[in-house]
Simulated scan of single mutants.
Amino acid sequence: MEHVIFVALCWGVGGFINGIAGFGAALIAMPLITTMVPLRLAVPSCTILGVTLCLQMAWTYRKHIDFDRLKPIYIGTVPGAVVGITMMQEFPAHYLKLGMGIFLFIYALWGLFFEGKSQKVVHRGWGVVAGFCSTAISSSIGMGGPPTIVYTSLAGWAKDTVKAGIASYFIVSGVLVISLQTYAGIQTKETVMLFAAAAPAVMIGARLGVLLSRRIGEFTYRKVLFGMLAVMACIILRSAVTQLVAIA
């Protein structure tokens, strides 16, 4: 019972951060949750919670959804999900975390201190790469947000368009991942029960975060975005290093 309350509190905080930045729920909640809950339960329940949260976010920002801009990201989801399920079963999670953490930290520092006022918009083709990487990471270790977030931050989208795009994408990729997880026997009665216990907390937290985010302008939002990425990079790196030390 204690671990269920702990999971709900973690997801409530994660939902609040997600409401402000448009992402971050899993990256905040998962490192904490996995200290008490095994990955075999935490990752699948995280996927269901992520889709639920994204449905709420997509509805909130539905007027800003641009499906044409999202097409390149969608293309990468199917191969990414297949690769991710394979990685979860075959490839050590700490190596994935270490690589993603290093890249994310470097990018966050660039955004915080070196990003110019005039942004160079990246080619749409990078959206395919982002969709592939996000879905692969999400289905393997439950922290797949960064690649898509990096792409949307470089694509010249406005604040609310970024939030709507991220939410819409993760609904599609999340449903796909849940389907594959169910087929592979990864989704179980235990993971669904863990989801049900945390769902109210994450939705309430997200709603409070959205209300606060409406007071934030575009420039401040980008700094919040990069600041969040830096914090998340540190969380991911800490988790990876801890696992590597334990193995050694």
Results as ranks from 00 to 15, higher is better:
28 I>G: 02
87 M>C: 03
189 K>C: 01
1 M>C: 00
117 K>V: 08
89 Q>P: 03
108 A>Y: 06
157 W>R: 00
143 M>D: 12
127 G>E: 09
49 L>Q: 07
40 R>K: 14
79 P>F: 07
235 I>D: 14
148 T>K: 00
201 A>C: 14
177 V>S: 14
161 T>L: 00
25 A>C: 10
178 I>S: 13
208 L>T: 13
134 S>Y: 06
133 C>R: 03
67 F>S: 01
228 M>A: 04
221 Y>R: 01
163 K>D: 06
141 I>E: 14
200 P>T: 11
210 V>N: 07
120 K>M: 03
88 M>D: 07
162 V>K: 09
145 G>K: 00
151 Y>V: 01
221 Y>L: 00
169 Y>H: 11
84 G>D: 09
23 F>I: 06
140 S>I: 03
223 K>R: 12
74 Y>W: 14
150 V>M: 01
19 G>C: 10
61 Y>N: 13
150 V>I: 12
164 A>T: 02
64 H>Y: 10
12 G>T: 05
194 L>M: 15
77 T>N: 09
82 V>S: 04
80 G>A: 02
110 W>H: 15
57 M>E: 06
6 F>N: 10
85 I>V: 15
94 H>L: 13
57 M>L: 12
21 A>Q: 11
48 I>L: 15
163 K>T: 08
174 G>A: 00
31 P>M: 04
92 P>I: 02
21 A>E: 04
223 K>N: 12
126 W>N: 14
197 A>Q: 13
154 L>G: 05
187 Q>M: 03
167 A>D: 05
3 H>F: 11
66 D>C: 00
122 V>M: 01
142 G>A: 11
32 L>C: 13
119 Q>H: 11
208 L>D: 09
112 L>I: 01
243 Q>G: 15
89 Q>C: 10
125 G>H: 09
162 V>I: 15
89 Q>G: 11
32 L>I: 11
109 L>E: 09
245 V>K: 15
16 F>A: 02
38 P>K: 14
110 W>E: 05
72 P>M: 07
101 G>E: 11
92 P>E: 10
197 A>L: 08
28 I>M: 13
5 I>D: 13
170 F>W: 07
191 T>G: 08
91 F>T: 14
93 A>W: 08
38 P>L: 06
177 V>L: 04
13 V>T: 14
56 Q>C: 03
24 G>Q: 10
90 E>K: 13
